[in-house]
Design a protein around this nucleic acid. Structure first.
Lengths: 206, 206
DNA sequence: TCAATAGTGTCTGTTAGACATTATGGA
DNA sequence: TCCATAATGTCTAACAGACACTATTGA
């Protein structure tokens, strides 16, 4: 399942089934093909772009597969910004995740798992950077994090944490976008290892 | 794959294959059986105990399955303390994870995934409590967390966080264990919802 | 000049880790 | 008495969120 940022929201790529139902693009493995390679191939063929990040979600057997297969192995792929601006060739379409409705039970479970997987890994892998162009403003980076996390972040805190992590370096370019003061462009340039985990969290549901 | 605390370390249940190799217990689904139910059944049959916690790890196709199946769906199950004291019936054995060697490539990947999955969920689900008896001392609880996380924790911080989380309540019993001052017994009794996540972490590898 | 956005400085409350201290039983 | 463990209090550094402020452009 491919996700991409579009219009300030996450969009998911769906394909029209032979009937009229929308389904997550899928294919069976060919020969000894690795699972990751199958997922890569499905994303390239359905979206027209190569994914810039890919992760397995898990195996799903509840509900129904579009072709009645017993087992689905779900993957989530992120496709860089801009790739979702024009719809890909065949019967596929980018749909904002908030407007997706009428999926089958298994398909809906996979979509929820995809969002959860992205949010889980966001602080451990440079996911947001792979969705942006090489040069970006800090506001764009923050907006990408907010998009992927699905919640607002505090500007000053975001920049403080980013500075402390030595993840980006400023370029000498600036970009003026409409009204306000121009923003400096940055690039992803990780420099140091990060701090070790501190403490234990007891974030149970209660 | 079943894990249990034993001798201050995590132990994993392995079965002897027809040859002489040790493999993770497995079975194919029967009919329309749900994946979680298959995993439950495998754990009960191989360990003799019902798992007190169960989670899917993912689908694995690289490497080789003991019976050359294309795809393995890995699960990790935790079995309460004490169940691993005596080995189960057939050709199965609890082995400390640190001493496991000579597994196949796919099996080794699943074992690593099992440990990672447990550690990932430890702060979101009451995993540690399901491994302990209903009454336990705070030191025992901390040792369980340390066992599952694979690292030492700070005593005062651990208790402070635990208190703030309203997860346990004291009983009026005490237990004297060898030398020092007796410890009060506690029971798991979650009371309030936890705080929401704060901030963003940039724990990338760099 | 006003509006809008970028970027920064300061304050405060929370929390984790270090350290010390008291409490209480067994050897 | 000495030792080992439980349990708790205090201090400090790190950090997140709030808020205000300056900077710089276009309308």
């Amino acid at each position: 399942m491919a996700l991409t940022p579009r219009d300030g929201e996450l969009a998911v790529l769906l394909e029209r089934e032979s009937g009229s139902r929308w389904v997550i693009p899928w294919e069976a493995p060919r020969g000894d093909e690795r699972l990751d390679d199958v997922a890569q191939r499905v994303v390239r063929e359905s979206s027209g772009s190569a994914p810039s990040w890919l992760s397995q979600i898990g195996a799903f057997a509840d509900g129904r597969h579009p072709s009645d297969l017993d087992l689905s192995v779900g993957y989530v792929a992120l496709v860089p910004m801009g790739a979702g601006d024009e719809p890909p060739s065949n019967e596929a379409e980018w749909r904002p995740v908030s407007e997706v409705a009428g999926l089958g039970e298994r398909q809906a479970t996979i979509l929820q798992g995809a969002l959860a997987t992205v949010r889980d890994r966001l602080d451990l892998q440079p996911i947001a950077f792979r969705l942006l162009p090489v040069s970006f403003t800090l506001s764009e980076l923050q907006q990408m994090y907010e998009l992927l996390l699905g919640r607002r972040l505090h500007k000053a805190s975001f920049r403080r944490a980013l500075q402390a992590a030595f993840l980006v370096e400023p370029t000498d370019e600036w970009r003026s976008e409409g009204r306000g003061r121009p923003a400096q462009l940055y690039r992803y340039a990780p420099k140091r290892r990060r701090r070790g985990r501190r403490g234990v969290r007891f974030d149970l549901l209660g």
